[in-house]
């Protein structure tokens, strides 16, 4: 289990969970590295804190609160299990949390079994037209096509939607506008209506480059202003939009939304998964990431992930 987790849900704000830490020192070091994303970051966000099983004295609680205050975080409620900690919290004038803190919702993601991934070049990316003269001298239509695998023999595996955060867990930026919650998820197979794709928990907007080892997940759409480097992972129930280069792993439509799309200014991912479909990058010369095709969109067509030149519809 991860040492620290950040969970966001519509209407409930954000919960910072340090229950996984073994000691006060660990909790503080993780908490401080998490909170100090930027001083503006937490402004106006409803933050709750879960101290889990930690046994803290009044002075230690005061220390944690001071740390939070330093970056503008004022937890509106704090969860704790130990009586000593609860007493210490009350001494510091903190509102104890009611009931149980929110937990991660279970999500199911289907992926094919590894050994069955086979060389299967997909050469039918329809709109990869290179007929525009002078678009780019680097333009090579074959370069960016993805290899999709047949998704008939999937095994369903439970996978937490929040792929347990790394310890340096800065980049969670859950913001959940309440208005977006009204739209409920239609079944993926339903016909498309005016609004494309389901919106479940609003949009998460992240202005940061995700580096190797960092993961972000969100229950709605996700917008990342920055790059997603190889080794980083983006998971969303809705669409994923990267205003930058997507070079890591992206999973859109987690939970079975096959209408989800992944788009990026430079779509050069290692793997992408949309809903039930899976695609990996071709084995290419990996030294030249500067060769790209401009903005592209990946979506499912006939059960397979295909890449198109981006065009607003």
């Amino acid at each position: 289990m991860s040492k620290i987790a950040i969970i966001s849900q519509p209407d409930q704000g954000v919960l910072i969970d340090v229950g996984g830490c073994a000691s006060m020192q660990e909790a503080i070091s993780h908490l401080s590295s998490t909170l100090q994303v930027s001083s503006q970051f937490w402004k106006g966000v409803n933050v709750a804190l879960n101290l889990g099983d930690l046994e803290l004295t009044s002075a230690q609680v005061a220390h944690i609160l001071a740390l939070a205050k330093g970056v503008g975080v004022y937890p509106y409620q704090v969860f704790a299990q130990r009586p000593l900690t609860r007493g210490a919290l009350l001494e510091n004038g903190v509102i104890l949390g009611d009931g149980t803190p929110m937990t991660l919702p279970a999500m199911t993601i289907k992926v094919p079994e590894n050994p069955e991934i086979e060389e299967d070049w997909e050469d039918e990316s329809v709109n990869m037209s290179d007929d525009e003269p002078g678009v780019s001298i680097f333009y090579e239509p074959s370069e960016n096509q993805l290899i999709t695998d047949d998704v008939t023999e999937h095994q369903t595996e439970d996978q937490a939607d929040q792929p347990d955060g790394p310890i340096d867990f800065e980049p969670k930026a859950p913001k959940a506008p309440k208005a977006a919650k009204t739209e409920k998820t239609p079944a993926p197979s339903e016909k498309k209506e005016e609004v494309k794709g389901p919106v479940q928990a609003g949009v998460m907007y992240l202005r940061q480059t995700l580096r190797s080892g960092q993961t972000v997940s969100h229950q709605g759409h996700m917008v990342i202003i920055g790059d997603v480097n190889p080794g980083a992972e983006v998971v969303a129930e809705g669409d994923i939009t990267v205003w930058g280069a997507l070079r890591g792993i992206a999973r859109a439509g987690v939970g079975g939304n096959n209408d989800a799309e992944i788009r990026a200014l430079r779509l050069q991912p290692i793997q992408i998964r949309i809903g039930d479909a899976f695609a990996r990058s071709p084995d290419r010369n990996r030294l030249h990431y500067d060769v790209h095709n401009g903005p592209e969109t990946a979506r499912i067509v006939d059960g397979k992930i295909k890449v198109f030149k981006f065009s607003p519809q």
Partner: peptide, 26 residues
């Protein structure tokens, strides 16, 4: 790199079977 779906930690934490996490060489 592009064939990795599951990993060692997934196996240890029993999110997948060992056989699923093994990536066959090209």
């Amino acid at each position: 790199e592009n064939r990795v779906v599951y990993n060692l930690v997934d196996v240890v934490e029993e999110r997948c079977k060992l056989r699923q996490a093994l990536v066959k060489d090209k």
